[in-house]
Amino acid sequence: MNILITGGDKPLGKAFAKHLGNKHKIFLMNENTLDITNRVETLRTISNINPEIVIHCDEIDNIEKCEKNENLAYTVNTIGCLNVAYSCYSLDIPIIYLSTNYVYDGKKESPYYETDNCTPINVYGKTKLAGEKLIQTLYNKFFIIRCGWLFGEENNFIQKILNNRDVPVFMCSNEIGSPTYIEDVCTAVDILLSTNYYGIYNCANPDPVNKSLWVKYILDCSNIKKEIIEIPQNYIPNCAPRPHYSAIETTLLKNCFNIKLPNWRERTKTVVANINKKPPTK
Protein backbone atom coordinates (compact mmCIF):
# COMPACT_ATOMS: atom_id res chain seq x y z
CA MET A 1 0.00 0.00 0.00
CA ASN A 2 1.22 3.52 -0.82
CA ILE A 3 0.79 5.72 2.27
CA LEU A 4 1.38 9.46 2.49
CA ILE A 5 2.16 10.71 6.02
CA THR A 6 2.10 14.40 6.90
CA GLY A 7 4.08 15.70 9.85
CA GLY A 8 7.12 13.62 9.02
CA ASP A 9 9.27 15.74 11.35
CA LYS A 10 6.97 15.01 14.31
CA PRO A 11 7.45 12.05 16.70
CA LEU A 12 4.18 10.44 15.62
CA GLY A 13 4.88 10.85 11.91
CA LYS A 14 8.34 9.34 12.32
CA ALA A 15 6.91 6.46 14.35
CA PHE A 16 4.33 5.67 11.67
CA ALA A 17 6.99 5.69 8.96
CA LYS A 18 9.20 3.35 10.99
CA HIS A 19 6.37 1.00 11.96
CA LEU A 20 4.66 0.80 8.57
CA GLY A 21 7.72 1.09 6.34
CA ASN A 22 8.52 -2.64 6.34
CA LYS A 23 5.37 -3.62 4.48
CA HIS A 24 4.12 -0.40 2.87
CA LYS A 25 5.63 2.26 0.62
CA ILE A 26 5.81 5.42 2.70
CA PHE A 27 5.82 9.01 1.42
CA LEU A 28 6.89 10.99 4.47
CA MET A 29 6.11 14.71 4.17
CA ASN A 30 7.43 17.48 6.41
CA GLU A 31 6.87 21.23 6.41
CA ASN A 32 9.56 21.65 3.73
CA THR A 33 8.03 19.14 1.31
CA LEU A 34 4.35 19.83 2.00
CA ASP A 35 2.92 23.11 3.27
CA ILE A 36 -0.53 22.02 4.41
CA THR A 37 -1.61 25.65 4.88
CA ASN A 38 -1.43 26.07 1.08
CA ARG A 39 -4.52 24.41 -0.45
CA VAL A 40 -3.26 24.39 -4.05
CA GLU A 41 0.13 22.95 -3.10
CA THR A 42 -1.47 20.33 -0.84
CA LEU A 43 -3.82 19.13 -3.55
CA ARG A 44 -1.03 19.07 -6.15
CA THR A 45 1.38 17.15 -3.91
CA ILE A 46 -1.14 14.53 -2.83
CA SER A 47 -2.42 14.21 -6.41
CA ASN A 48 1.09 13.67 -7.78
CA ILE A 49 1.87 10.94 -5.24
CA ASN A 50 -1.65 9.47 -5.46
CA PRO A 51 -1.43 7.39 -2.26
CA GLU A 52 -3.99 4.80 -1.28
CA ILE A 53 -4.42 6.44 2.13
CA VAL A 54 -3.24 9.60 3.92
CA ILE A 55 -2.23 9.65 7.60
CA HIS A 56 -2.46 13.25 8.76
CA CYS A 57 -0.14 13.93 11.74
CA ASP A 58 1.02 17.45 10.95
CA GLU A 59 0.05 19.96 13.62
CA ILE A 60 1.22 22.43 16.19
CA ASP A 61 1.05 20.27 19.31
CA ASN A 62 2.69 22.68 21.75
CA ILE A 63 -0.24 23.60 24.02
CA GLU A 64 1.31 26.85 25.24
CA LYS A 65 2.31 27.96 21.73
CA CYS A 66 -1.26 27.40 20.52
CA GLU A 67 -2.64 29.44 23.41
CA LYS A 68 -0.27 32.34 22.74
CA ASN A 69 -0.72 32.33 18.95
CA GLU A 70 -4.30 31.38 18.21
CA ASN A 71 -4.18 32.49 14.58
CA LEU A 72 -1.18 30.27 13.84
CA ALA A 73 -2.79 27.34 15.66
CA TYR A 74 -5.98 27.62 13.60
CA THR A 75 -4.01 28.11 10.37
CA VAL A 76 -2.01 24.90 10.82
CA ASN A 77 -4.29 22.67 12.90
CA THR A 78 -7.63 23.60 11.32
CA ILE A 79 -7.08 25.14 7.88
CA GLY A 80 -4.20 22.73 7.26
CA CYS A 81 -6.47 19.83 8.17
CA LEU A 82 -9.16 21.20 5.86
CA ASN A 83 -6.70 21.36 2.96
CA VAL A 84 -5.55 17.77 3.49
CA ALA A 85 -9.14 16.54 3.89
CA TYR A 86 -10.29 18.46 0.80
CA SER A 87 -7.50 16.88 -1.23
CA CYS A 88 -8.47 13.40 0.01
CA TYR A 89 -12.12 14.08 -0.79
CA SER A 90 -11.27 15.36 -4.30
CA LEU A 91 -9.11 12.32 -5.02
CA ASP A 92 -11.30 9.77 -3.18
CA ILE A 93 -8.50 8.81 -0.79
CA PRO A 94 -9.33 7.73 2.79
CA ILE A 95 -7.79 9.86 5.55
CA ILE A 96 -6.60 8.94 9.04
CA TYR A 97 -6.54 12.01 11.27
CA LEU A 98 -4.66 11.98 14.57
CA SER A 99 -6.62 14.02 17.09
CA THR A 100 -6.49 14.42 20.87
CA ASN A 101 -8.24 13.74 24.17
CA TYR A 102 -8.14 17.51 24.71
CA VAL A 103 -11.29 17.85 22.60
CA TYR A 104 -13.13 16.89 25.83
CA ASP A 105 -13.81 19.48 28.53
CA GLY A 106 -12.72 17.48 31.58
CA LYS A 107 -15.95 17.83 33.56
CA LYS A 108 -16.69 14.10 33.65
CA GLU A 109 -15.30 11.87 36.37
CA SER A 110 -15.16 8.76 34.21
CA PRO A 111 -13.42 8.03 30.88
CA TYR A 112 -14.84 9.77 27.84
CA TYR A 113 -16.54 7.84 25.05
CA GLU A 114 -16.38 8.90 21.41
CA THR A 115 -20.04 9.95 21.60
CA ASP A 116 -19.59 12.32 24.55
CA ASN A 117 -19.95 16.04 23.89
CA CYS A 118 -16.78 17.84 22.90
CA THR A 119 -16.31 21.32 24.35
CA PRO A 120 -12.53 21.87 24.55
CA ILE A 121 -11.18 24.43 27.00
CA ASN A 122 -7.88 25.34 25.32
CA VAL A 123 -6.95 26.60 21.86
CA TYR A 124 -5.15 23.39 20.93
CA GLY A 125 -8.25 21.29 21.63
CA LYS A 126 -10.49 23.77 19.82
CA THR A 127 -8.34 23.75 16.68
CA LYS A 128 -8.16 19.95 16.64
CA LEU A 129 -11.93 19.59 17.11
CA ALA A 130 -12.53 22.08 14.31
CA GLY A 131 -10.36 19.88 12.09
CA GLU A 132 -12.42 16.84 13.05
CA LYS A 133 -15.66 18.60 12.16
CA LEU A 134 -14.37 19.78 8.79
CA ILE A 135 -13.33 16.24 7.87
CA GLN A 136 -16.76 14.90 8.80
CA THR A 137 -18.49 17.66 6.83
CA LEU A 138 -16.44 17.02 3.70
CA TYR A 139 -16.12 13.30 3.50
CA ASN A 140 -17.17 9.91 4.84
CA LYS A 141 -13.96 7.91 4.32
CA PHE A 142 -12.19 8.90 7.51
CA PHE A 143 -10.72 7.50 10.69
CA ILE A 144 -10.40 10.07 13.46
CA ILE A 145 -8.14 8.75 16.21
CA ARG A 146 -8.26 10.57 19.55
CA CYS A 147 -5.09 9.83 21.51
CA GLY A 148 -4.22 10.54 25.11
CA TRP A 149 -0.87 11.71 26.52
CA LEU A 150 1.57 10.44 23.91
CA PHE A 151 4.92 8.99 24.95
CA GLY A 152 7.64 6.77 23.53
CA GLU A 153 9.75 6.72 20.38
CA GLU A 154 10.93 10.30 19.81
CA ASN A 155 8.29 11.85 22.04
CA ASN A 156 10.52 13.05 24.86
CA PHE A 157 8.21 13.28 27.90
CA ILE A 158 9.74 10.32 29.76
CA GLN A 159 13.23 11.23 28.55
CA LYS A 160 12.71 14.77 29.86
CA ILE A 161 11.66 13.49 33.29
CA LEU A 162 14.72 11.24 33.51
CA ASN A 163 17.08 13.94 32.24
CA ASN A 164 15.97 16.20 35.08
CA ARG A 165 16.43 13.64 37.83
CA ASP A 166 18.57 16.08 39.85
CA VAL A 167 16.11 18.98 39.91
CA PRO A 168 12.76 19.31 41.70
CA VAL A 169 9.66 18.14 39.81
CA PHE A 170 6.67 20.46 39.90
CA MET A 171 3.43 18.98 38.59
CA CYS A 172 -0.13 20.20 38.29
CA SER A 173 -1.94 18.30 41.03
CA ASN A 174 -5.30 17.64 39.40
CA GLU A 175 -4.72 16.33 35.85
CA ILE A 176 -6.05 12.82 35.21
CA GLY A 177 -5.70 11.27 31.78
CA SER A 178 -4.62 8.34 29.63
CA PRO A 179 -0.94 7.79 28.80
CA THR A 180 -0.68 6.52 25.22
CA TYR A 181 2.34 4.65 23.88
CA ILE A 182 3.10 5.85 20.35
CA GLU A 183 3.97 2.35 19.12
CA ASP A 184 0.55 1.09 20.21
CA VAL A 185 -1.11 3.87 18.20
CA CYS A 186 0.90 2.73 15.18
CA THR A 187 -0.16 -0.89 15.73
CA ALA A 188 -3.83 0.11 15.96
CA VAL A 189 -3.65 2.24 12.80
CA ASP A 190 -1.91 -0.59 10.96
CA ILE A 191 -4.97 -2.75 11.64
CA LEU A 192 -7.37 0.01 10.56
CA LEU A 193 -5.59 0.34 7.21
CA SER A 194 -7.12 -2.88 5.92
CA THR A 195 -10.70 -2.04 6.93
CA ASN A 196 -13.42 0.39 5.94
CA TYR A 197 -15.04 0.69 9.37
CA TYR A 198 -14.72 4.45 9.22
CA GLY A 199 -15.48 6.63 12.22
CA ILE A 200 -14.09 8.18 15.41
CA TYR A 201 -12.07 6.01 17.79
CA ASN A 202 -10.35 6.69 21.10
CA CYS A 203 -6.90 5.13 21.39
CA ALA A 204 -4.96 4.95 24.67
CA ASN A 205 -3.41 2.50 27.08
CA PRO A 206 -5.88 1.41 29.79
CA ASP A 207 -6.42 2.85 33.27
CA PRO A 208 -6.75 6.58 34.04
CA VAL A 209 -3.92 8.04 36.12
CA ASN A 210 -3.06 11.31 37.81
CA LYS A 211 -0.17 12.82 35.85
CA SER A 212 1.96 13.33 38.94
CA LEU A 213 1.51 9.65 39.85
CA TRP A 214 2.57 8.69 36.34
CA VAL A 215 5.73 10.77 36.76
CA LYS A 216 6.35 9.09 40.13
CA TYR A 217 6.04 5.70 38.43
CA ILE A 218 8.55 6.80 35.75
CA LEU A 219 11.02 7.74 38.48
CA ASP A 220 10.37 4.54 40.42
CA CYS A 221 11.14 2.49 37.30
CA SER A 222 14.61 4.06 37.33
CA ASN A 223 14.99 3.75 41.10
CA ILE A 224 15.05 7.53 41.43
CA LYS A 225 13.76 8.68 44.78
CA LYS A 226 12.70 12.28 44.97
CA GLU A 227 9.69 14.36 45.89
CA ILE A 228 7.16 15.49 43.32
CA ILE A 229 5.80 18.91 44.29
CA GLU A 230 2.14 19.20 43.32
CA ILE A 231 0.74 22.66 42.68
CA PRO A 232 -2.70 23.87 41.52
CA GLN A 233 -2.89 24.79 37.84
CA ASN A 234 -3.96 28.37 38.61
CA TYR A 235 -0.63 28.90 40.40
CA ILE A 236 1.25 28.52 37.12
CA PRO A 237 1.37 31.91 35.33
CA ASN A 238 0.31 32.14 31.68
CA CYS A 239 -0.42 28.43 31.52
CA ALA A 240 -2.89 27.15 28.93
CA PRO A 241 -5.82 25.46 30.69
CA ARG A 242 -5.89 21.66 30.69
CA PRO A 243 -9.00 19.56 31.30
CA HIS A 244 -9.04 18.21 34.84
CA TYR A 245 -10.11 14.79 33.53
CA SER A 246 -9.24 13.70 29.99
CA ALA A 247 -9.05 9.91 30.30
CA ILE A 248 -10.61 8.09 27.35
CA GLU A 249 -12.54 4.85 26.99
CA THR A 250 -11.31 2.51 24.24
CA THR A 251 -14.07 -0.12 24.23
CA LEU A 252 -15.12 0.80 20.69
CA LEU A 253 -11.62 0.13 19.34
CA LYS A 254 -11.66 -3.29 20.99
CA ASN A 255 -15.19 -4.19 19.89
CA CYS A 256 -14.69 -3.16 16.25
CA PHE A 257 -11.12 -4.35 15.65
CA ASN A 258 -10.32 -6.65 18.57
CA ILE A 259 -7.58 -4.23 19.62
CA LYS A 260 -6.75 -4.45 23.31
CA LEU A 261 -3.77 -2.34 24.29
CA PRO A 262 -1.47 -3.17 27.23
CA ASN A 263 -1.60 -1.19 30.45
CA TRP A 264 0.35 2.10 30.49
CA ARG A 265 2.49 0.78 33.37
CA GLU A 266 3.86 -2.02 31.19
CA ARG A 267 4.64 0.36 28.33
CA THR A 268 6.16 2.99 30.63
CA LYS A 269 8.45 0.38 32.16
CA THR A 270 9.58 -0.71 28.68
CA VAL A 271 10.35 2.84 27.55
CA VAL A 272 12.26 3.64 30.74
CA ALA A 273 14.29 0.43 30.38
CA ASN A 274 15.17 1.29 26.77
CA ILE A 275 16.24 4.80 27.73
CA ASN A 276 18.43 3.51 30.54
CA LYS A 277 20.18 1.15 28.11
CA LYS A 278 21.36 4.04 25.96
CA PRO A 279 24.77 5.55 26.67
CA PRO A 280 24.55 9.00 28.29
CA THR A 281 24.71 11.94 25.87
CA LYS A 282 27.70 14.25 26.10
Rank of each mutant, 00 (worst) to 15 (best):
K141I: 00
I229F: 14
I93H: 08
A247H: 10
S90D: 06
N205H: 07
Y181V: 05
M1L: 14
K68C: 09
A130G: 01
L43N: 08
K107S: 10
K277Y: 07
N71V: 12
T100I: 06
E114D: 08
S99R: 07
S222T: 01
F16V: 06
Y198C: 00
S246I: 08
T75N: 13
D190C: 03
G13R: 13
L150P: 02
Y124F: 12
N223W: 04
N255L: 11
E175L: 12
C239Q: 13
S246V: 03
F142H: 03
S246A: 14
P120C: 11
N205P: 06
I229H: 15
Q159R: 15
F16T: 01
V189Q: 09
G7Q: 08
V76Y: 02
N71Y: 11
Y102D: 05
D190I: 00
R146Y: 01
E132A: 04
P208Y: 05
V40R: 15
K160S: 14
D190E: 14
Q136H: 04
E132Q: 09
S178G: 01
E64G: 10
I60V: 14
I182S: 13
L138D: 03
L129F: 10
K277W: 08
P208I: 01
C57E: 01
I145V: 15
N274W: 02
I26V: 12
Y217A: 03
E266Q: 14
A247T: 02
N223P: 03
I95H: 05
N83I: 07
S99G: 05
C118A: 07
L150W: 04
L219V: 04
I224N: 00
N62S: 13
L34R: 08
